[in-house]
């Protein structure tokens, strides 16, 4: 028996919104530790890694490890039926081929449930080695989304370069070039507005705008975003989900011929 209750169903809805551009379907791996998902987009350029800890749920029970393959468009339809303040309870029997979502309004005066068919998906999991990153940038997630959106107008790729002076985002294309430089700023009163850089050595890498833009769909999940970079290693873009876990995106760099 699997049962997970989340008072803020909107958090799960935000996770779905953040990954549905990249993935059509995905397997949710449920264990006593929580819910995990790891899946690559169809072109194998980016990877989504979601970790929701069991103790972040308001109730969590998983008697037997369970892999639930879901069509994310269908799952999106189910969550579209939920109210912003609803509580969600997910339930599945052992070896079941369906999962049930029950939504309860805050006042408990409306209860709806939706049963969705599960899918058998060929899971391809990658082993991601621990990496000592050359630089780790933490910045407001809204600022990151804004920069990626702005620079995407200029070209298909963005160069992210980081030195001890700060981080620079650059794009170039037919109409010209764009550069945005951010210096470190520590705002002790408003931690979420800070830009912090933990630098071991300078690094500059090129990434496709299309994927970076998709990642920024996770902006509503977290005030801050963490970018981890290292030469010749995929970029890690991480959004912490308060009290529940994290959503990470990995993106393979563009490499000069």
């Amino acid at each position: 028996m699997f049962e997970a209750r989340l008072v803020n169903s909107s958090t799960f809805r935000k996770v779905l919104d953040a990954i549905k551009d990249l993935l059509n379907e995905a397997s949710f791996d449920c264990s006593e530790n929580g819910i995990q998902l790891q899946a690559m987009d169809s072109s194998h350029v980016s990877l989504v890694s979601l970790n929701l800890k069991s103790d972040g749920f308001d109730k969590f029970r998983c008697d037997r490890n369970l892999t639930m393959g879901m069509n994310l468009t269908s799952l999106g339809k189910v969550f579209k039926c939920s109210g912003a303040d609803d509580t969600v309870t997910m339930k599945a029997q052992d070896y079941a081929d369906t999962v049930t979502f029950m939504f309860e309004s805050k006042k408990q005066d409306k209860i709806s449930d939706y049963e969705m068919k599960l899918m058998n998906l060929d899971q391809e999991h990658l082993g991601i080695p621990d990496t000592e990153f050359s630089c780790i940038i933490k910045m407001p997630s809204i600022e990151f989304a804004r920069i990626i959106r702005d620079l995407s107008q200029f070209g298909e790729s963005i160069v992210i370069s980081c030195t001890k002076e700060g981080v620079k985002f650059s794009a170039q294309g037919d109409i010209g070039t764009g550069n945005v430089k951010l210096a470190q700023t520590h705002n002790f009163d408003k931690e979420e507005e800070s830009v912090t850089i933990d630098l071991q050595e300078p690094v500059a890498l090129t990434f496709a705008c299309q994927y970076l833009n998709s990642f920024t769909k996770a902006t509503p999940l977290s005030n801050q975003v963490k970018l981890s970079m290292c030469e010749n290693v995929p970029l890690v873009v991480e959004y912490q989900i308060p009290e529940l876990g994290h959503l990470r995106f990995y993106l393979a760099p563009k490499i000069e011929e």
């Binding site: 072109s43 350029v45 082993g127 290693v233 393979a252 490499i255 000069e256």
Partner: peptide, 14 residues
């Protein structure tokens, strides 16, 4: 121009 690499060239399949 830079070529797009894939993740499978960095990470091993489990």
């Amino acid at each position: 121009a830079a070529n797009q690499s894939t993740l499978t060239s960095f990470f091993k399949r489990k």
